[in-house]
Computed example of a mutant assay.
Amino acid sequence: MAGLLANLRNTVIVSFVLALIIIAGYFMHYGSADAIFWQAVFRWLHVLAGIMWIGLLYYFNFVQIPTMPKIPAELKPGVSKFIAPEALFWFRWAALVTWVMGIILAFDRGYLLQAITLGATEGFKVPQHSFIGLGMWLATIMFFNVWAFIWPAQKIALGLVEADADAKAAAARKAMLFSRTNTLLSIPMLVTMTMNQTIFG
Rank of each mutant, 00 (worst) to 15 (best):
A49V: 00
L88S: 13
N182I: 04
L20T: 04
D34R: 05
T117S: 14
A157R: 03
W53G: 10
I141L: 10
P188W: 13
G78R: 14
A73S: 12
R9P: 01
F27D: 08
Y30K: 13
T194Q: 01
A170G: 06
L20Q: 10
F149C: 07
P188M: 02
T194F: 00
I65K: 00
T192E: 02
V41W: 10
A169I: 08
G25F: 11
A24S: 02
L88F: 11
V41P: 11
G55T: 05
M1G: 09
L177S: 05
V79E: 12
L177C: 04
Y58M: 11
A175S: 15
L8T: 00
L57V: 15
G50T: 13
F37Q: 09
L113R: 07
A73I: 05
L48Q: 06
N7C: 10
E86A: 13
F60Y: 05
N145A: 15
K155D: 10
L4R: 00
A94G: 03
T192V: 04
F200V: 06
L184S: 08
M189I: 03
L56Y: 11
N196W: 12
G55I: 01
G123D: 02
I54S: 14
A157P: 02
A157K: 01
L20H: 03
M136H: 08
G31N: 13
A2S: 09
L160P: 06
L190A: 13
G25Q: 04
P66A: 10
D34C: 07
V47F: 10
A153H: 00
N10L: 09
Q64I: 12
G119V: 03
L134H: 01
K81M: 15
F124N: 07
F37I: 09
I132N: 00
D108W: 11
W44P: 00
